[in-house]
């Protein structure tokens, strides 16, 4: 039978994959991969905050990542520097601050490696509450705003003209990503969160004709990657995050050329 820690990890992974799939589509469509990466880097400061103050590291991460998103929005609004410059500054500032703070905390048992690459052994029941609670909130908000988000992604001014409050919807998308980042750290790790968002959605793209189908298929691909990766990690004793991403990449590498072939067949039968 499966060890309880593997079951906990599987439950966590499934929850994450279900929300990462639809949200990952917007990461692909709106070119937010670098934003997601920067957000994840800043999560280390949230973990440090948790260690120093004794609050849950999940809560610490949500707080720090939300602050990160708000500061970014404000700096973007000043139009003085380009977004990728701002992200580079903020991400590495938060990462460095986090590392400095952690070394001040002097916690002997702190295992940086498990935060960077994920570790199924660290998933606790409390984390499952966070994942499924946060996941349900995130999915509900995502679906409630699905049409606004989609229209805004296709054309921002068109959405504005039709009454979409684009500033708030944009902010919402950023906050949804902070939730996903916060709850994914245990499983995939800070360095690999973006790939869990981007790879399943990218794999799904060629097989669908509607945005909803892409979101659904991305969730399925994410699910397969998470399940395959966690079993691989448990049996081969490999780091969890990299195992999941390897599984996702294998799917992408296998399906991408096939989709291209199928399309060619259809075009030149």
């Amino acid at each position: 039978m499966l060890e309880p820690f593997v079951l906990r990890a599987l439950a966590a992974g499934i929850g994450i994959a279900l929300i990462a799939g639809p949200l990952g589509c917007f990461v692909v469509w709106r070119r937010m991969a670098y934003f997601g990466d920067s957000l994840a880097h800043s999560a280390l400061l949230g973990i440090a905050l948790g260690l120093l103050t004794g609050i849950s590291s999940n809560l610490g991460t949500v707080l720090v990542c939300s602050a990160f998103a708000l500061i970014l929005l404000w700096l973007q609004h000043t139009r003085i520097l380009a977004t990728d410059t701002l992200l580079g500054i903020l991400a590495h500032a938060a990462l460095s601050l986090g590392m400095v703070a952690i070394s001040f905390a002097g916690n002997q048992r702190f295992d940086l490696h498990s935060y960077l690459f994920g570790d199924i052994l660290t998933v606790r029941v409390e984390d499952l509450y966070w994942i499924f609670g946060g996941g349900v909130i995130a999915l509900t908000l995502l679906f409630k705003n699905w049409f606004s988000l989609l229209l805004m992604t296709i054309h921002e001014d068109l959405a504005k003209a039709e009454g979409v409050r684009t500033f708030w919807v944009n902010l919402l998308l950023m906050l949804l990503m902070t939730i996903v980042v916060a709850v994914s750290i245990r499983i995939v790790g800070i360095l690999l969160i973006t790939s869990l968002l981007a790879i399943p959605a990218a794999t799904a793209r060629q097989w669908v004709r509607s945005p909803e189908a892409m979101a659904f298929l991305a969730a399925i691909f994410g699910l397969l990657a998470v399940i395959g990766g966690i079993f691989g990690s448990a049996y081969f004793d490999t780091p969890t995050g990299p195992s999941i991403v390897t599984a996702a990449t294998a799917m992408f590498a296998f399906l991408f050329p096939i989709a291209a072939l199928v399309k060619r067949q259809r075009a030149f039968p």
């Binding site: 049409f147 003209a161 669908v208 509607s210 892409m214």
Partner: peptide, 24 residues
Amino acid sequence: YVPQRLTADPTIPITTRRFISLRK
């Protein structure tokens, strides 16, 4: 409202019919 141009991004899978009725 008719904007100046729409750069339809091929990463978003959507048909013209769906786009026309999107949200309205």
